[in-house]
Design a binder for these strands. Structure first.
Length: 483
RNA sequence: GGCCCCAUGGUCAAGCGGUCUAAGACACCGCCCUUUCACGGCGGUAACCCGGGUUCGAAUCCCGGUGGGGUCACCA
C-alpha cells in the first residue's frame, strides 16, 4: 500500500505551533517512505474561514520547507482540495446514508437542543442528542418543512456497540456507542460537519495514514462508525500528543507566540523551528540533538513518537536557533538582519555595495551572540549610534581611571595617520599594542577604557572587530569627547 | 462531572524484565580557553508520582490511587 498522508488545516487563523508539528510529522512520514503529502483546506466553517488565512498557512508551510504534492494551488488527481468545493461529493454520500436509513433528517431547533442539553446536565447526565427525530414519518417531515424548518442530517449511531480505535502511537482505544449521541453530518445550511467531511475526504483522497493531534482522538470513533456505514476501509491512525505551554495546559496565545509567522518575524530560522518541533514528541534515540530537515526525513518513524504531552520550551528553541545562526552563511544572515535594522531606523532601503559589506561585518561581529535575528538591533546598536552612553557603575569607574585620557589621546593620534580610513582587525590589534608600549601600560588598562569609550559597555564583540567596523573616523568621533 | 489519554531530573527525552549505583540535550553551577561578554571544551547539581501485586529479579508487566491533559457544538 502506498503512503498517502495529509495535513488538513482550517483556515481560521495563522499556522500554529501545534499545527506546524502535525504538518511536519505528516511530511516527514510521507518523505521517509517516498509517499505523497497532501494539504487539504478544511473551510467548512464559513464564518471563520478566510482566503487570507489559507494563504498565510500555506506561506508558513512553505517557509518551513514542507512542500506538498497535492493541494489547492498545485492541484492533483483527487481534487478539489478545498472542502467548500466538494459539497456535492458530501451530499452524494449523505444521500446514500439517508437512503439506507443509516442517517435521518432532524428538525430540532438550536434552542430545543440547548434546552435538552441543559436538562440532561441538570440531571447530572451526559449531554447528548437523545434521538427525538430518530423515527420521524414522512408526514412529520412535511409538517416541519411547511413550518419553514430546515433539517440537519444526523447519523444513526448503532446501539450497544463498542468502537475500537487502533492507533499506531496509542494502541487500541475503545469507546462505547452509548456515550455517543446521533451526531450531525450535514448542517442545516447543507454544509457537512468536520467528522463527516474528513471521512469522505480521507477516503476519496485515498489517505493511508491519518496523523494528527491527540485532541482528535475522541472524534475518531464517530469517524470509524461512518467508515463502517459507508462500507469503507479504515485508514491507519496515529494521534500525536499535544504541545503544552509552561503551565501544562494546551498551548495558547497567553503562553506567548503561538503562530509560526510570529517566529518568522522574530527572526527564527525555519531549520531551527523544524528541528525543535520534531524533537517535541519524537526522538531518534541517539545522543544527537541537531537534525536538519533531510536528516529528520531519513530518521523519522511513527513508532518513536512519544505518548505523553510535551511542554514547549522556548529556552531550548533559542539555543537551537542560536546554533543554526552560528552555522548560517553570512550573506544569508545579513539578508535577514537588514529588515530588522531598517525597522529600527538604523538603515534605509537601497544599500550601496560598500555599505552592504560594512553591514556584513556588523553581522559577523554579533553572530555568536544571537539567539534570534530580532536581537540583532540591540546587539549591534553600538555601531549605529555615536552618542555613546556609559552604562553601569563598572564602566563609569573604568573611565575614571587616571591613565584613560592619555590612552585615548594616544590612540586617536595613532588612528589618525591611517590614510584610507579603513582599519583592519589585525591593524587595530597592533595599534592598541603600540599604545600600551608608548605608555607602559598593559591589558585591561588600555583595552577596557577603549571598549567603554567606544561602546559604553564593558562587554560586547571583539574589540578589534569593533574598531574595524567603526573605522578611523568613527573611532576618532567617539574618542574625542574624552580628551 | 462522564468518557478518553498520559505519568523518568525544572524542561525535552533515552530506556521496551536483569548490562540502571538510569544516557543525552536545554537551563543552572564550576573550571579551562579568551585583552571583555559570548562561542567552544571539560566537569558538576538534579529524576523513575504513590500503594499493592506478578516475577528469582520491575523505571520497564498488571491493578488501584493520585496528579496532569484532552474531549463532550448545526467549530474544526
Amino acid at each position: 500500500m502506498s503512503v498517502r498522508v495529509r495535513f488538513a488545516p482550517s483556515p481560521t487563523g495563522p499556522l500554529h505551533i501545534g499545527g506546524a508539528r502535525s504538518a511536519l510529522f505528516n511530511w516527514l512520514f510521507a518523505r521517509h517512505y517516498g509517499g505523497t503529502y497532501i494539504v487539504r483546506i478544511e473551510d467548512t466553517d464559513l464564518e471563520r474561514s478566510s482566503r487570507q488565512s489559507e494563504e498565510n498557512i500555506l506561506n508558513s508551510l512553505r517557509w518551513l520547507g514542507l512542500d506538498w504534492d497535492e493541494g489547492i494551488d498545485v492541484g492533483g488527481p483527487y481534487g478539489p482540495y478545498r472542502q467548500t468545493e466538494r459539497l456535492d461529493i458530501y451530499s452524494q454520500y449523505a444521500e446514500a446514508l439517508l437512503k439506507n436509513g443509516l442517517a435521518y433528517h432532524c428538525y430540532c431547533s438550536e434552542e430545543e437542543l440547548a434546552a435538552e442539553r441543559e436538562a440532561l446536565m441538570a440531571k447530572g447526565e451526559l449531554p447528548r442528542y437523545m434521538g427525538r427525530c430518530r423515527a420521524l414519518t414522512e408526514e412529520d417531515c412535511q409538517h416541519h418543512e411547511a413550518a419553514g424548518r430546515r433539517p440537519v442530517v444526523r447519523f444513526r449511531v448503532p446501539a450497544g456497540e463498542v468502537v475500537v480505535v487502533k492507533d499506531i502511537v496509542r494502541g487500541d482505544v475503545s469507546f462505547e456507542c452509548s456515550d455517543i449521541g446521533d451526531f450531525i453530518i450535514i448542517k442545516s445550511d447543507r454544509i457537512p460537519t468536520y467528522n463527516f467531511a474528513v471521512v469522505v475526504d480521507d477516503h476519496t483522497m485515498v489517505i493511508s495514514h491519518v496523523i494528527r493531534a491527540e485532541e482528535h482522538l475522541s472524534n475518531t470513533p464517530r469517524q470509524i462508525l461512518l467508515y463502517n456505514a459507508l462500507g469503507w476501509d479504515i485508514p491507519e491512525f496515529a494521534h500525536v500528543s499535544l504541545i503544552l505551554g509552561k503551565d501544562r495546559s494546551k498551548m495558547s496565545k497567553r503562553h506567548g507566540a503561538t503562530a509560526i509567522e510570529q517566529y518568522q518575524a522574530k527572526g527564527y530560522l525555519p531549520e531551527a523551528l523544524v528541528n525543535f518541533l520534531a524533537l517535541l514528541g519524537w526522538s531518534p534515540g541517539g545522543e544527537e540533538e541537531v537534525f536538519p530537515l533531510d536528516e529528520l526525513k531519513q530518521q523519522f518513524s511513527l513508532d518513536r513518537v512519544a505518548k505523553s504531552p510535551a511542554v514547549f520550551d522556548l529556552e531550548k528553541l533559542n539555543w537551537l536557533n542560536g546554533h543554526y545562526i552560528r552555522q548560517a552563511p553570512l550573506d544569508q544572515l545579513t539578508a535577514l538582519a537588514i529588515p530588522h535594522f531598517e525597522k529600527a531606523g538604523y538603515l534605509s532601503a537601497p544599500l550601496s555595495p560598500e555599505k552592504y559589506q560594512w553591514v556584513k561585518m556588523v553581522v559577523a561581529s554579533v553572530q555568536k551572540h544571537l539567539s534570534c535575528m530580532e536581537e540583532i538591533t540591540t546587539q549591534a546598536k553600538i555601531y549605529f549610534d555615536d552618542e555613546v552612553q556609559i552604562e553601569g557603575q563598572e564602566a563609569q569607574e573604568i573611565m575614571a581611571g587616571e591613565q584613560v585620557p592619555a590612552v585615548l589621546r594616544d590612540l586617536i593620534k595613532k588612528v589618525s595617520v591611517t590614510i584610507s580610513g579603513e582599519i583592519k582587525e589585525n591593524e587595530a590589534k597592533e595599534l592598541l599594542k603600540e599604545v600600551g608600549r608608548d605608555l607602559g601600560l598593559k591589558g585591561k588598562q588600555i583595552f577596557m577604557p577603549v571598549r567603554v569609550a567606544l561602546t559604553g559597555s564593558t562587554q560586547g564583540p571583539d574589540l578589534n572587530q569593533i574598531m574595524a567596523i567603526l573605522g578611523r573616523d568613527g573611532i576618532i568621533r567617539r574618542l574625542s569627547r574624552w580628551t
